[in-house]
Design a binder for these strands. Sequence first.
DNA 1: GTACCGATTTGATCTGCCTCAAAGACTGCA
DNA 2: TGCAGTCTTTGAGGCAGATCAAATCGGTAC
Lengths: 257, 257
Amino acid sequence: MANISERSPDEAVSVLSENAEQRNDLNFCQACSVRNRAICADLDDHEVELLNGIGRRRHLDPGETLLWEGEEAIFVANVVSGVMKLSTQTSDGREQILGLAYPSDFIGRPFGETSPYSAGALGEVVVCVFRRMDFERFAHEHPRLERKLLERTLSELDKTRRWMLLLGRLNAEERLATLLLEIFSRNTAPMCGSASPQDNDHFELPMSRQQIADILGLTIETVSRQFTKFRDEGVIAMSGRRTVTVRRREVLEALAK
Amino acid sequence: MANISERSPDEAVSVLSENAEQRNDLNFCQACSVRNRAICADLDDHEVELLNGIGRRRHLDPGETLLWEGEEAIFVANVVSGVMKLSTQTSDGREQILGLAYPSDFIGRPFGETSPYSAGALGEVVVCVFRRMDFERFAHEHPRLERKLLERTLSELDKTRRWMLLLGRLNAEERLATLLLEIFSRNTAPMCGSASPQDNDHFELPMSRQQIADILGLTIETVSRQFTKFRDEGVIAMSGRRTVTVRRREVLEALAK
DNA sequence: GTACCGATTTGATCTGCCTCAAAGACTGCA
DNA sequence: TGCAGTCTTTGAGGCAGATCAAATCGGTAC
């Protein structure tokens, strides 16, 4: 199981420290690429300004970990750009990726003592970080935010449960088809906020083969063989290891249950 | 995959009809066995009375389905007694159980058009059912309930993600150990509201071998072999098919990751 | 260009779980 | 008490995906 975490939990407390990132401009949020899609979408300008006051922009390098499973849940955050992975581990070190967080997605565990998962950057990531306590207080005072959080959490639960079907019942081919379609749709979605807008039939994989394996509950070898199979069958084409062109979308859709 | 649903979706709309169950007494909730643990726990007596006015008690026979995946989300409910299963299916009919709902657990999908899963009774079940629309309106007017719903949903999400680790990374032995411990702890928990309080080392399985297989993402044969293995190793003892005595709890705990 | 190194692919073999089949054990009912 | 039907257990064999091992690829530093 790959462990791409590079910093110790202790260092995480520096995320909001003085030298980590300067205080946001007052109208920072207004220019935010996820302003209208993130959890803050329903807030009016005044409320956003208040929220702005308790949050900080933070850049994460590839592999850097923002939240540590089992550690005190100090932060919550919004993903502004890039892709993060949420993961958990067995006591003997096997890793399972629980999901991916794309721009505008909310991560962290409000109203909880410890973080139920680790959250790490897959590539370059920008997040908007809040101290959990500050965020909770703000949510209490602004029911629209709390409401939005509830809706988000409910749809996150739906998404997570759909993923259980993949882990419990789909074979390797079906799992990879499902993931490719999900990444494909995320990348071609309007306003995705990722670094480079994609053409409409190819995209960059935001993670390595090992990480794909962790996401799908497979081994790296099985994932690699499935890629080769899709390529040989003309379902996808690859240039380099991370650029995928979807040639026969209907085949992937028939496989993704 | 076993499909224990016995009624068509159309019949579900009769759940709240006049002949389904009589209107609750005004102080019905006060006597409710899950009053202090369910989502209504934070409400004061007056609020509970109002909530009482929009809910109905409903009895479900074993195998009866309350919510249908993909159908319009008409109801939400609290489990009062018994155990329900939440499940989803692939397009070609493979079933995956998403989780179990015990007394005081909330089921259904507020703020959603369609139900993301099916919910069926494993044994005899009593639920407290609300029309989704009524419940949503009530929640809006009573932030304490909405707040409670948020907390519930967040911890449900935690629980679901932990289950993903089981489906993605644990072997058959580890999966069954995990399930046995979960059922064990649910049954020996104080105030569990189930039909018969259990002694502290044995309990009744609330579901068949096939259902256990669906929950764990295994086949019935594999589940049966694991039961036999645990029995032969002296980890558990069985009397009949559904009564389990835990003899070496530490072995199960070492296996459950 | 060339050497190096980690990531990926490919090959060979193994194994845990599934599938198919049949026997055995409960449960309800006559 | 015996019978039928269903659920569960057990057995035999197969296969998808894991494991172990080695070759190849891609990027990069020199």
